Amino acid sequence: MNQHLLMIEDDVRLANMVCAYLGQSGYQMTHAGDAQTGLSQVQSIAPDLVILDLMLPDMDGLEVCRRIRALHGALARTPVLMLTAKGDSMDRIIGLEMGADDYLPKPFEPRELLARIRAVLRRQGDGAVGGDAHLMRFGVLDIDRDARTVSVSGQLCDLTSYQFDLLVALAERAGRVLTRDQIMEAVRGRELEAFDRSIDVHMGRIRAAIEVDAKNPKRILTVRGVGYVFARQQD
């Protein structure tokens, strides 16, 4: 069965072009021209991924992303790829804080959009990092690779697919200091720019989900000037 993508975009010409291109690439496409219709479609068709424009006529794309993350069950974990205006780095950072899995600045090449969609869906489907044991346990923190869930003291944590993979990448290398490039390469499988603030945004979200005090983390530690390390044992 083809994976079903929902594009929430008010630019009809762009949406038709993207939907035609992705349709030829094997995806089933649905287009919504405004935020309210898009949110209704998320609940009615349960898409495998949402392509979300930041600027919509009836609601900010950031608010749409927030409302998707506030839905119940699996719908709340629907991957979101946000389309942002070229050069608006702050909008991209806020989008990631709202729970977007990835972003792509406009204008973009359809091939790059396709590559990013495949990467997000691959992470969602089977994870970005391997391993034999499906369950990793660190004190009260449980990471279940098969179910793609994280829990603390039995309470499920709210993480996006990308944040789950970032956490797994760190946990599998517990005790080892990783640079931002090494972490993102482990998750995305390709080298990125030398510095990308999105990794810091995601780490903040992960800490907020798994740490007792996100401002004084004990599990995911920052190594100033280098990157991050997942502590095997908490202080």
Rank of each mutant, 00 (worst) to 15 (best):
R92P: 01
P110C: 03
E112A: 04
I94S: 05
R92I: 02
E97V: 01
G95W: 06
G95D: 08
I93C: 07
M98D: 09
L114M: 02
F108A: 08
I117E: 01
G87W: 01
D102W: 05
G99H: 14
P110L: 04
E112L: 12
I93N: 06
D102S: 14
D102Q: 14
K106S: 09
M90F: 02
E97G: 15
P105V: 04
M98Q: 15
R111V: 04
S89A: 08
D102Y: 09
D88A: 00
G99M: 10
E97Q: 15
A115P: 03
R92H: 00
R111S: 12
L96F: 14
D88W: 00
L114V: 02
M90C: 00
R116W: 00
L104W: 14
L104G: 11
R92E: 10
A115H: 06
R116H: 00
D101I: 08
G95E: 05
I94W: 11
S89F: 01
Y103I: 03
F108Y: 14
Y103A: 15
L96W: 09
P107W: 05
L114H: 12
D101T: 08
F108Q: 04
G99D: 07
I93P: 04
I94H: 09
P105K: 10
G95C: 12
P105T: 05
P105H: 10
L114C: 03
A100C: 15
Y103K: 13
G95S: 08
D91Y: 02
G99F: 10
L114P: 06
I93G: 01
P105E: 05
D91Q: 07
P107D: 10
I94P: 02
D91E: 01
I117W: 01
E112Q: 13
D102L: 06
R116M: 02
L114N: 06
D91M: 04
P107G: 07
Y103C: 13
A100N: 13
D88Q: 06
E112W: 02
D88I: 00
R92N: 00
R116P: 03
E109L: 13
M98P: 01
P107Y: 08
L104H: 11
K106G: 03
M98I: 00
E109T: 08
R116T: 02
M98L: 10
R116Q: 04
L104M: 12
D102R: 05
R111Y: 03
S89T: 07
Y103G: 07
A115N: 06
R92F: 00
E97F: 06
D91H: 01
A115M: 09
M98R: 14
K106D: 09
A100H: 12
R116L: 03
I117N: 07
A100T: 13
R92S: 10
L104P: 10
F108V: 06
L113A: 05
L104F: 12
I93R: 13
R111G: 12
L113W: 03
G95L: 11
R116V: 00
L113P: 06
L96S: 11
D102T: 03
P107C: 08
I94A: 09
D101E: 15
M90P: 02
P107T: 10
L96D: 08
G87A: 06
G87Q: 04
M90K: 07
D102K: 06
